[in-house]
Design a protein around this nucleic acid. Structure first.
Lengths: 221, 221
DNA sequence: AATCACTAAATTGTTAACAATATTTAACAA
DNA sequence: TTGTTAAATATTGTTAACAATTTAGTGATT
């Protein structure tokens, strides 16, 4: 198993919340699990730390990151900026084949959803955003959006839990494609912003999950 | 000398074009120069590669990156997106003290320029952009802009050379602050875009510096 | 010269052993 | 119990030696 494989496996485990935020990631343990040397794990952890999926403290090891509410807020706000820019760029230059490709993606997402394969549906839903970025043709924008997409599940997991309501809504994706097809970038951006704010607002307004109050916790049992 | 120190030194050497694009970066050589072990250098090179300042090929070492014209174009376009967003966010929430701080920065830049200290002037000019990002209060946007700012000198160096015309113009910075102070975000963004396009266009229109034609090169001597 | 084959050197990549640091455990005292 | 210390253990960090690969050099052949 190569370094990149290990990286993907750990990343996927975080997304699937098999590794909840805060989980300690010990080097020898991981090395044994994946059947690689400790050096490989150290490189992987460094890379994950660089992309903010894990926190690393000198001499105290690595753990799955627990992004702050502020980081989550900033991440979503930046995401709106990037996805807005991508739509602005893409709309006037998109062609029929690309529109078809996007609709096909949405169909597959819808099918997965109706087949109750929520994991696949979620994955395809993310692919929609990725695909828009790719079609935009700006590699740097795409790179940054992918970075944000990678970090987003952890934010949602940390601050909203695993509520299925946190998913993207397929209809909104369709509305975005409709607006893009008519060449109405402004409208497409507006829908995308609403789309993202839908999840974003739930983080902002979440009551501050502050210290699980021991007294209440024990007395009410 | 610590890992971070080595990183900064190499980065600065790239910015100062003491290490031109394409320069081979050999591990033992660098280790001896900085008086550190090879392991430290390897980590530094990995980090530099991650932030695209260095190209790394398996088994063939690292060299100072030579960003393509496309990458340069995308980088500048993304920069306009980010700086525009930052101004949009900052303008309605900026206070007098912050305006004063910005103007002070511009004064220092102007002084450096008049004192013919072009290196300091350039550094302060970059600080202006960084400071706007910081004041915007979105850590992720700030992070991404800093990433872009780090990559920009290499693009300019690779595709425009060391022409002093490539600097930011102080007057434009002042006009941006003026617009922000009056609360006119739209105008501030417009000036910023013009400001960035000024450099950007010189890349796009640069004649393709195509293979240094050996024949011409040798026969004309 | 130009190309190929082969060897030697240089360079990058990996690993196991060791060092440094942090964490746990146990024993003891207040 | 609570707190303190010290040893034992676990974990991370570093290094020097080795392995694998690429690059440079050499000479033979056409």
């Amino acid at each position: 198993m190569s370094e990149d494989d290990v990286l993907r496996q750990i990343e996927q485990a975080v997304i699937d919340h098999r590794l909840p935020p805060g989980t300690k990631l010990k080097e020898v343990q991981l090395a044994e699990v994946f059947g690689v040397k400790r050096g490989t794990i150290r490189k992987v952890l460094a890379r994950l730390a660089y992309s903010r999926l894990v926190d690393q403290l000198p001499n105290r090891g690595a753990s799955v990151a627990r992004p702050s509410v502020e980081e989550g807020r900033d991440l979503f706000a930046t995401r709106r900026v990037l996805e807005g820019a991508i739509i602005q760029i893409l709309t006037p230059q998109i062609n029929k084949a690309q529109i078809r490709q996007l609709r096909q993606l949405l169909d597959r997402e819808q099918n997965a959803y109706e087949a109750d394969d929520s994991k696949l549906a979620l994955s395809l839903s993310v692919d929609f955003h990725r695909q828009l970025a790719k079609m935009g043709g700006n590699g740097v924008l795409e790179e940054y959006l992918n970075d944000i997409i990678r970090r987003t599940p952890l934010v949602i997991l940390t601050h909203l839990g695993t509520d299925p309501q946190n998913r993207c809504r397929n209809q909104e994706h369709e509305a975005i494609v409709d607006a893009i097809e008519t060449g109405d970038a402004k409208k497409a951006v507006a829908i995308m912003n609403r789309h993202l704010l839908h999840i974003e607002n739930r983080i902002e307004h979440k009551t501050e999950d502050p210290q699980p109050d021991l007294a209440t916790l024990l007395l009410s049992s």
